Computed example of a mutant assay.
Amino acid sequence: MTGGALLSILVAWLLAIASPGPDLVQILRLGAVRRNGVACALGIMSGNTLWIVASMVGLSALIDAVPWVLTALFLVGGAFLAWMGQVALRGGLAERRSAGTTVSATPTTTAERVSTLGAWRLGLMTNLANPKALVFFGAVFAGFVPPDTGWTTRLIILAVMLVTGIAWFVAVAVMVSVPALSRRLQAAGPWIDVIAGVVFLVLGVILVGEGLLEL
């Protein structure tokens, strides 16, 4: 593999992870508490690692040979995103209704309520629920990594993508946890949940719709 091909993969990867989507929305939901934001970022990259490895070992080729596998991924992933969306939406609306009516020492925002392990799990499931990641990785490896590419080169690609991905998502999590911004995110927590819920619901419906069209 040439240096130019590796650079092309890196550029495509950076553009993909920097573009707005469910992963970044989830970090905004949880990032007001730094440890939860970082855990969510690591969960997202755990999911991306699975997608990358799956593409390397031939899942994309399997989908080309058995198209219903991708259809199933769209249906299951879309349904999960929609479910997560309605949970976030209902939670955000409930928080809005109760805002200002009670005084409590217990955590009131999603970022405060969720555990660190729960934040990692949410990041992982959010990433895995979006099968478009597989489409991206399939396109990247099909376009830039020849089938005869050795495993040493594949592992180098994996390492580069992991390092840059972790650096990006953790940096975002740290930035949104800066005290001044963190206070704003905590104050806007219910609205963030409402917006995130709508985003997840819309994306979930789109994915389910795409899956149904493939049936």
Rank of each mutant, 00 (worst) to 15 (best):
R35W: 09
R121A: 13
L42D: 10
A167P: 03
A167I: 04
L14V: 15
V140D: 04
E214H: 11
G3R: 13
L59W: 03
V208K: 09
L117S: 06
W151G: 08
G211Q: 11
M1H: 08
S46Y: 00
A41K: 02
D148Q: 13
S60Q: 07
V87K: 14
L42R: 04
A187Y: 08
R121P: 10
R184H: 14
G91F: 01
A180I: 05
W51S: 13
S19K: 04
G37F: 09
T110M: 07
S104W: 05
I156N: 10
I195L: 15
T153E: 09
T49Y: 06
L42I: 05
P146N: 14
A79H: 08
I192A: 08
L93Q: 06
I156S: 07
V172A: 08
S55P: 00
I52N: 02
V199M: 08
V198G: 12
F74P: 04
A16V: 02
T49P: 04
A82W: 08
I192M: 06
S60K: 03
L124S: 03
L162C: 09
A142V: 01
T106D: 09
A79P: 07
T101L: 15
E210Y: 11
S55W: 01
N130H: 00
F137L: 05
W120M: 02
L181T: 10
E214Y: 09
T108L: 02
L207N: 13
